[in-house]
């Protein structure tokens, strides 16, 4: 999808303003505002049920009965849906690959959904698979890949259309320690090398690196926004874990 008028330029990769969302009369998100610059790595930290997945659903417009504004690269997800959507890559919480199809077929399907021709799709798929170290697995059925490899395929898929913003919703669920570390590292490299902004949702504090910017989401409200170093300094505690406990209070401990 080519487009003429722009608002990308210096616009933030993601901009959320006063976002509120209620489900069944119960507020799930309350007055969320945040901005993520191009190439920035941001961790969205919150316990289960904090509203992380809901926030992602609203950004990707799976549903959008909400208040407030969401813009991707300056494009409103509602009024300029086509352009906004073309700039988002997503790795969902649940696995979403077709297990019976090969890696290449899964990527080709996604490329087609973004309007790419077969040739271009193949070139990009090869480049992305090489990047995640799965170039030799193109023809393998997804069913035969390990959990970590499937996640990497999903990241390759999320980046196939060269988005400005990559959303990852608890991408390390079910992975072993080594695969988790690899994935976190890979996401950081993407930001540094490709200029892709990454929003990484997790409830695992050990996935946060000292220099990462952290957004703490709890019960639908954004409690903190800053690097883990500034957070610990501000609250006068030694670790991010303590800072987190202090922020979310006594209820809902985070594992």
């Amino acid at each position: 999808m080519k487009d003429s008028p722009t608002r990308d330029g210096d616009a933030p990769a993601l901009e959320v303003q006063d976002l509120s969302f209620a489900y069944g009369g119960r507020p799930v998100l309350e007055a969320i505002s945040l901005a993520i610059a191009a190439g920035e790595f941001v961790v969205l930290l919150g316990p289960n049920g904090a509203g992380k997945t809901t926030l992602f659903s609203l950004i990707t417009r799976l549903h959008d009965r909400r208040q407030g504004e969401i813009r991707i690269g300056g494009f409103d997800v509602r009024r300029q849906a086509v352009k906004a959507h073309a700039r988002i890559g997503v790795v969902f919480q649940q696995p979403t690959l077709d297990l019976d199809l090969s890696v290449a077929q899964n990527l080709a399907y996604h490329a087609a959904l973004h309007g790419m021709g077969p040739g271009e799709a193949r070139r990009r798929a090869e480049a992305q698979l090489a990047r995640v170290g799965l170039a030799d697995r193109r023809r393998t059925r997804v069913r035969r890949l390990s959990g970590g490899q499937r996640r990497r395929v999903e990241i390759a898929r999320g980046l196939l259309h060269e988005p400005r913003l990559l959303l990852l919703d608890e991408p390390t669920v079910g992975l072993d320690v080594a695969s988790r570390r690899d994935l976190v590292e890979h996401a950081h490299r993407l930001c540094a090398e490709e200029g892709v902004a990454v929003l990484w949702a997790t409830h695992l504090i050990d996935e946060v690196r000292p220099g990462d910017r952290v957004l703490v989401l709890h019960r639908g409200r954004l409690l903190a926004d800053g690097t883990s170093a500034t957070l610990t300094a501000r609250l006068g505690v030694a670790t991010l874990g303590e800072a987190f406990d202090r922020l979310v209070g006594e209820e809902a401990p985070c594992d």
Binding site: T60, V82, T96
Partner: peptide, 13 residues
């Protein structure tokens, strides 16, 4: 399985 989501995040209407 979530693959409906994959379809629906496509930029097409």
């Amino acid at each position: 399985m979530g693959s409906m989501r994959v379809l629906l995040v496509s930029p097409f209407p």
